[in-house]
Structures are given as C-alpha cells and as structure tokens.
C-alpha cells in the first residue's frame, strides 16, 4: 500500500472514460448529444481517449434550434471534419413546420423550450437507447440528485422518485423497449474542473467563449446578444460591449457577461474569483425555484 493518488483531473478523466466505455458495452444504439458547448466538446475529447484508434461506437447528435451562434456551427462542422465521426442534426424548424410545436411570441420568445420535442423525436426516429450528455451535478440543485445512468420513460420523462440505486461504479443500463437512458460522464466535474481540463489538454473552443466586441441589449438585468432572433422593441438600447459567454445555448436565452478574458488563463482566473454560478447566466432557469426539476421531468436534457 502506498499513498500515491492520481491527480484530480486524471481521476475525473479516468471516471468519464470508464462511463463512456460502459455505454459502448451496454447499449445497442447510443448517441452523444453535442450542443457545441464546452461540456460536450470535453465529452468528444474524452471519447477520443476512450475509443481511439477505433471509431466512436456512436454518432454525435446536435439539436439545432436555428437560433445558434454562428461561431458554434462553424466550430461544429470543423470539428466533425477533423475527427471524421458521424453527425446527425435534428432541426427545431422541422418540428415547427410539422406543427408539433408552436413558436413562442412576445419579447422573451425563445426556441429553447421547443428543443425537447425535437430531441425526443430525433431519439425515436433513430431508435437511440442511450444519450450521452455533458450535464454536471454542480450546475443546479435538481441535477445534484441525478444518477450517472438516468432512465427516461417512453415520454422522455425523468422521475426523481423512481431513480435506481447506483452503487460503486456499477451502472445498470437495462431498459425496456421504448425507454432510454441519459448518461452523464462528467457528472462529478465542476465548471472549473472542465476549464482546467480544457487548458491542460489544449482543447480548442468556439470563439464566443473568449472576450470579444458585440452588440448587446440589457434585458431582465442580463446582457443579451442583439440578433435577428431576439424580439426587440423601441425600449431596447443597443450597446457595444466587451463580452464573453459562459454557456453556449440558444441565442435568445444565453446571457453574456462583460469580460476582458481573452485567453483561457484569464477565463480560469475570472471563474475562480467569480461570484455568479454558471447557470445564473441562463435565463431559462430563473422562472421558478424548481424550474430545472420541472423541465427535466418533461424530457429536457
């Protein structure tokens, strides 16, 4: 016996690789949900470590709201070309055209809630039995109780009262037909862990994560990128700000923070001293105290 221990980033990496390989071993048709954000980019990097020199045993799936930051899509396409893996895109616009969802109206209209339907339809269409996602338990209180293998019923719903016990590192991926499992390999990472890992591994990121000049408006106390997707009225004042984004969601619900963090070291310093949690910059969580729990039950990732 000795006192040797892996460094915490090695430990987190080893756990995530282990979970990805469990998905490969236990499921017939898994998929990796790719949002273009830093967490799912980290997942892709971990998948390279888990499966190279072989191919990924799953495609990447992107749910495209049509209201993306252009930089995210450029990044996505470049990355896919570079790693040579398969990408499947589910379009929210298709769900709107098919009449399955109705576009929201008004000043705070967002396509964010609509993606649940597109996601569930994409899962059903391709028959995915496991979907790997980049959610972390430190993001929000409801996530703190979610399992690493989290079973969803036929309607994509999460039932927090009926979660399976998850012991040691034994993950039970047995499901009935029609059900699927959401798998969260970086559950135990914090936002800062992800950034430190990205720095250590030199993982490239979409440019919007770094400080840049952008036209913004202030809404509900938060800075939003001015875009054709944001319904604006006469009261809205466009200002030029130095900003960056801490998460990469739909343009209509992802708030910017004023920042002069141009390099990854600056970002890590900024987060380490920050007093606002990452989801504090996501308007969709602010609706009610139990907002996340309600949306998860409905099938949101």
């Amino acid at each position: 016996m000795s006192k040797y221990r892996l460094d915490y980033l090695d430990e987190l990496e080893a756990e995530a690789i282990y979970i990805l390989r469990e998905v490969a071993g236990q499921f017939e048709k898994p998929a990796l949900l790719f949002s273009g954000g830093k967490d799912s980019i980290t997942l892709v990097h971990l998948a390279l470590k888990a499966f190279r020199p072989g191919k990924f045993p799953f495609p990447l799936v992107h749910i495209d709201t049509g209201h993306n930051f252009e930089e995210t899509i450029t990044y996505r396409d470049d990355m896919i070309a570079h790693i040579g893996e398969k990408l499947i895109v589910g379009h929210v616009q298709d769900s709107i055209n098919e009449g399955k969802v109705i576009e929201q109206k008004g000043k705070n209209a967002s396509r964010n809630p609509l993606q649940t339907t597109t996601l569930l339809d994409t899962i059903a269409k391709h028959g995915f039995d496991a979907c790997i996602g980049g959610a972390r338990r430190d993001e929000e209180k409801a996530r703190a109780k979610e399992r690493i293998f989290s079973v969803r019923d036929e309607f994509g719903q999460w039932d927090p009262k009926r979660q399976r016990p998850e012991l040691w590192d034994i993950y039970n991926g047995k499901i009935h037909k029609g059900e699927n499992v959401r798998v969260f390999p970086i559950s135990n990472w914090t936002e800062l862990d992800v950034w430190n890992y990205i720095r250590r591994e030199n993982i490239p990121l979409p440019t919007i994560y770094f400080a840049h000049q952008r036209e913004c408006i202030t809404r509900n106390g938060q800075l939003m990128a001015a875009s054709p997707f944001l319904n604006m009225d006469a009261d809205d004042v466009i200002e030029h700000k130095n900003v960056r984004f801490r998460t990469v969601g739909d343009m209509t619900c992802t708030a910017a923070v004023e920042s002069y963090a141009f390099e990854i070291d600056d970002i890590i310093d900024e987060i380490a001293s920050s007093k606002i949690s990452e989801r504090g910059a996501r308007i969709d969580d602010k609706v009610s105290e139990a907002a996340m729990e309600d949306r998860k039950k409905g099938g949101y990732f």
């Binding site: 338990r137 430190d138 209180k141 409801a142 703190a144 109780k145 927090p160 135990n188 729990e293």
Partner: peptide, 29 residues
C-alpha cells in the same frame, strides 16, 4: 442541500444529493 421539490415540501432529504466544494488543499464530493 435540499434538492427536490417534494423534499422541500416535506422538509426531509429523501434521495442522495451530491455537493461539490474545494479548498486550497483538496476537492470534496
């Protein structure tokens, strides 16, 4: 540490919740 709505209503911790924090010396789960 009370994560779920039902737990807040009943004032008891039902499930296992994971919390993360760190000091300069160590990370904790």
């Amino acid at each position: 540490t009370d994560g779920l709505k039902a737990e807040r209503e009943q004032g008891i911790t039902i499930d296992v919740a994971y919390k993360y924090f760190e000091t300069v010396k160590r990370k904790f789960i």
